Deep mutational scan, measured.
Amino acid sequence: TEKEKEVKRLAKERGLSPDQVRELAQRAGFSPDQAKQIADEFA
């Protein structure tokens, strides 16, 4: 999704850790499970 792409782009730009990616995703409105899946891509 657009929102997911945006979260991943920000995460890459900022060099976020997987935990930070998960927090960012949840703040963007993703469920905890979705946020974990997104964060796992950065693990």
Rank of each mutant, 00 (worst) to 15 (best):
Q37V: 12
R9V: 04
K5G: 07
L16R: 02
K36L: 10
S17L: 09
A11H: 00
Q37I: 13
V7E: 01
E41K: 06
F30P: 00
E4A: 15
V21S: 01
E23R: 12
K36W: 14
R27D: 06
E2F: 12
E6V: 09
E4H: 08
Q20F: 04
P32V: 11
D40R: 13
I38N: 02
D40E: 14
T1G: 13
R27L: 13
F42G: 02
L24S: 02
G15I: 03
A43K: 09
A25C: 07
D40A: 13
E6Y: 15
V21L: 10
Q34A: 12
G29R: 02
Q37A: 14
F42K: 02
L10Y: 09
E2K: 09
A35Q: 03
K5H: 09
R14Q: 15
D40Y: 13
E2R: 08
E13W: 06
F30D: 00
R27H: 08
A25W: 02
D19L: 09
K36R: 14
E23S: 09
E23L: 14
G15T: 04
L24Y: 06
E41G: 06
K12C: 13
S31N: 08
T1Y: 14
A35C: 05
A43Q: 10
K8N: 04
G15H: 10
K3H: 06
S31L: 05
E4D: 05
K36M: 12
K5A: 14
Q34E: 13
K8I: 14
A35S: 06
F30Q: 00
E6G: 05
R14D: 05
P18C: 10
V21A: 05
Q20A: 09
D33W: 09
V7S: 01
L24R: 01
R14S: 08
G29N: 02
F42W: 13
G15K: 09
R27F: 07
G15F: 05
L16H: 03
K3A: 13
A25Y: 02
G15V: 04
E23A: 12
S17E: 07
A25I: 03
K12Q: 09
E23H: 09
L24N: 01
A43P: 03
Q26V: 15
A28C: 14
G29E: 00
F42S: 04
V7H: 02
Q20Y: 03
Q26N: 04
S31C: 05
L16Y: 12
R9G: 04
A35Y: 02
Q34F: 06
R14N: 11
A28T: 06
P32S: 11
L16G: 02
E13L: 15
E6R: 11
K8F: 07
Q34Y: 09
Q20H: 05
R9D: 05
S17Q: 08
I38L: 09
S17M: 07
K5L: 12
R27W: 10
E41R: 08
E4K: 15
K3W: 12
E13T: 08
F30I: 04
P32W: 12
S17F: 06
D19C: 12
R27A: 13
G29I: 00
K12D: 04
L16N: 02
Q26F: 09
Q20T: 03
A11M: 02
E6N: 08
Q34N: 05
P18G: 09
R14E: 06
A39P: 02
A11Y: 04
A39F: 03
F42T: 04
A35W: 03
A39Y: 03
R14P: 02
F30E: 00
E23N: 08
E2Y: 11
L10N: 04
T1L: 14
V21W: 03
E13G: 05
E13D: 06
D33V: 11
P18E: 07
A11D: 00
A11K: 02
R22G: 04
V21M: 04
R14Y: 15
R27E: 10
A28H: 14
P18L: 11
R14C: 14
A39K: 02
R9Y: 03
K12A: 10
A28I: 13
S31Q: 05
G29Q: 01
E2Q: 11
E2C: 13
K8R: 13
E41F: 05
R14T: 06
A28D: 02
T1K: 15
R22F: 15
K3L: 15
D33I: 12
S17A: 08
D19P: 08
L16K: 01
G29H: 01
Q20E: 14
L16Q: 02
K36Q: 14
K36T: 10
I38F: 04
T1P: 13
K12P: 01
L16P: 00
E13S: 08
G15Y: 04
K3P: 07
D33N: 10
P32L: 12
R14G: 09
E13F: 07
R9E: 05
V7G: 01
L24V: 04
F30K: 00
D40S: 10
E23Y: 07
V7L: 15
E41Q: 10
Q26W: 05
V21H: 00
A35F: 02
V21R: 01
P18S: 09
R9I: 05
F42N: 03
R14I: 06
A39G: 04
Q26C: 13
K5Y: 10
P32T: 09
A25R: 02
Q34I: 10
D19Y: 07
E41T: 08
D40L: 14
A43N: 07
E4S: 14
A39L: 03
A25S: 03
A35V: 04
Q37F: 07
Q37D: 06
K8G: 03
A11W: 05
R27C: 08
V21C: 10
F42E: 03
A43G: 08
Q37R: 15
K5S: 11
V21N: 00
V7C: 08
A25G: 02
K12G: 06
T1F: 14
I38Q: 02
A11I: 03
R27T: 07
D19Q: 12
L10M: 09
Q34T: 06
E6K: 07
E2D: 13
P18A: 13
Q26M: 15
D33F: 07
K12V: 07
A35I: 04
E4T: 12
E41D: 14
A28Q: 08
S31M: 05
K12R: 15
R22T: 07
R14L: 15
